[in-house]
Design a protein around this nucleic acid. Structure first.
Lengths: 145, 145
DNA sequence: ATTCAGTTGAAAATGATTGTCAAATACCCC
DNA sequence: GGGGTATTTGACAATCATTTTCAACTGAAT
């Protein structure tokens, strides 16, 4: 049996701290919206988030604006789902990559991607100055196999 | 001076062959559309492709349908541009990854991404059965530095 | 040349995203 | 703790992107 590591959502207070630091206001709506992403290990598409919040009286444009803001702040990470759909998961600022289950959509983040040597080789072969990369790994989580 | 490798678009006849093989018809519109992608080393967004073709009398829905078809056939590859825009480049079926210039958008494809060991480690750590990955590298091409 | 399933283009229908503005509210200052 | 102000919000409209529909057309097999 392989060892499994579960995805820990970032702590609740992080929103408060990041808002302070970057001078944006901490509103009720922003807390609710980030919370709902934190609670879903598979994240949500914007459309799902809009649906989930209009019940609670949070307007559609607020959801759009908030998702964009949280992404800029590094608190949401965008995932290009296997089906081509865009989803967002609660995350923390920094260099992480998503490992996504193709069946249930659950996401585990990982940090070390081993791209250093590959990037050096690419730089040498193509003359590009490498500035970064996007990486996403897909598979089946233990439950879905 | 580092060695540079330029991106060679796939050969024109490839569309013909792939269509034969997969039993879809080779139409004038499909040839024109794929050709226009082949000619642009930075690829095009769907919107750009629609614009480029309505001049020539190719309908908007045909462009949408054709891009989707060519992507399925492996003749177009979708790129998630640094700005979040979706672009498509002419490609050939198989395991390739794009190296994209953040300034001019030119794309070079590469094959060996060194993900094997990383995927094995992830499988061991998380219990996922790994099925694939999406990788995209960003930087500045020699001309844009 | 004939045939016919697959493909196309125009237009409408749908769906997603962005803009506008008056009302509401977080948070700084006292 | 309350008041003032710049930010944020929600309703609605406007815009933009994508999909559907269907009659006419066309590639390619015979």
């Amino acid at each position: 049996m392989p060892q499994t590591r579960s995805y820990e959502p970032p702590p609740r207070e992080m929103l408060r701290d990041v808002c302070r630091e970057s001078g944006v206001r901490l509103t009720n709506q922003r807390e609710q919206i980030w919370d709902s992403f934190r609670r879903k290990r598979r994240g949500m598409s914007i459309t799902e988030a809009v649906e989930a919040h209009e019940k609670r009286g949070i307007g559609l444009s607020t959801v759009y604006r908030t998702v964009a803001l949280l992404e800029e702040l590094g608190l949401l990470r965008r995932i290009h789902d296997h089906a081509g759909e865009h989803r967002y998961i609660a995350s923390r600022p920094g260099h992480f990559h998503p490992l996504v289950c193709r069946s249930c959509g659950v996401v585990v983040e990982f940090e070390s991607c081993g791209m250093g040597p590959v990037e050096r080789m690419l730089a040498a072969e193509t003359g590009f100055a490498i500035e970064g990369h996007d990486l996403e790994v897909h598979g089946r989580c233990p439950k879905c196999q």
